[in-house]
C-alpha cells in the first residue's frame, strides 16, 4: 500500500478526490477520505501535493529508506 492516510487530520474537503486522475479516493459517509480503489493508484502525488491537512501521503516505491 503506497498511500498513507491520517484519518484524524482529514476534514473531508474532497480536494484530493477531485484531483485524483484514477478515482482512487472518495470521501466516505464519515466525511473522511478513503482509498476506494487503491489498486488504481499511479503514485502521481496529486493528493499529497494538494491536501491542506497533511492527511494523505504517497510513498513511492524505493522511497522507504
Amino acid at each position: 500500500m503506497s498511500l498513507k492516510i491520517y484519518t484524524n487530520r482529514c476534514k473531508g474537503c474532497g480536494i484530493c478526490a477531485a484531483f485524483c486522475p484514477k478515482k482512487v479516493l472518495a470521501v466516505n459517509e464519515l466525511e473522511k477520505i478513503e482509498a476506494v480503489a487503491p489498486e488504481n493508484c499511479i503514485q502521481c502525488g496529486q493528493c499529497e501535493l494538494r491536501c491542506p491537512d497533511y492527511a494523505i501521503f504517497v510513498h513511492k516505491e524505493g522511497d522507504e529508506k
Binding site: 484524524n8 476534514k11 473531508g12 474532497g14 494538494r50 491536501c51 491542506p52 491537512d53
Partner: peptide, 17 residues
C-alpha cells in the same frame, strides 16, 4: 499540534506546507 484549526478545504494548510 495537528490537526490544525483551519476549515475543510482552506488553502492555508497548502501554503504552510
Amino acid at each position: 499540534r495537528l490537526p490544525h484549526i483551519w476549515c475543510p478545504g482552506c488553502g492555508n494548510g497548502v501554503v504552510t506546507g
